[in-house]
Design a protein around this nucleic acid. Structure first.
Lengths: 99, 99
DNA sequence: ATGACAAATAGACAATTATCTATATGGAAA
DNA sequence: TTTCCATATAGATAATTGTCTATTTGTCAT
């Protein structure tokens, strides 16, 4: 798994539609159309957001015939959150010494 | 400590200048001018970014005479990262049962 | 009071981004 | 191979956001 720039990670999450998509595919594989059906945006808009999530490797992809299925890459979310913590909450990630 | 919308949290982090500021004040109190000195942007730009970080409660503020000091609110970063994990990496946050 | 300094706010402008419609691509079925 | 369907891409437009200069606000020292 590659390093992700924390700014890129934050940008990927910094949109309501994108977070809704992430929520939808959090624990299941959904086709693009199934995602479109649950949101009030067009299919190209969903594809656009999926492309951004793909670039940041925040989603897994599975081709099946003419459909493409997406699911959230929870490992990557966890890893990137961990990177944020290390960078911006270092004092919360060190082990407290026993006094 | 109040709840922060994960989209707002991500938006606050979704800028390079803002992350640089967060890094600078991560483990120390700095005045606005001290921050300006370390970045290639103007004082109003820094104030603008600090306002955004303040609104998300990602920084602590301390007034001292005519100066205002800022430091990173690490607790809040940790809390918001935790919220992200719960929302987008739930399978990584549950305790593995012993088989 | 007055002058000097630090930080915040206002307003303008440029860059980025989210959305749309239209179209292209590529697989499956007929 | 021709048609149909799912998804991706292109290009246009509107909204959002980051940055700047100019100005205001507020505090300290004289």
């Amino acid at each position: 798994m590659n390093f992700t720039n924390p700014v890129h990670f934050a940008k990927a999450l910094a949109d309501d539609t994108r977070q809704k998509i992430m929520n939808l595919v959090c624990c299941q594989w959904l086709s693009v159309n199934e995602i479109v059906e649950q949101l009030n945006v067009t299919q190209p808009t969903v594809s656009h957001h999926l492309a951004i999530l793909r670039e940041t490797e925040l989603v897994n992809t599975r081709e099946a015939g003419k459909q493409t299925f997406y699911s959230l890459n929870q490992e990557r979310v966890a890893y990137c959150c961990g990177q944020l913590m290390i960078k911006f909450a270092p004092d919360m990630t060190t082990i407290d010494p026993i006094e």
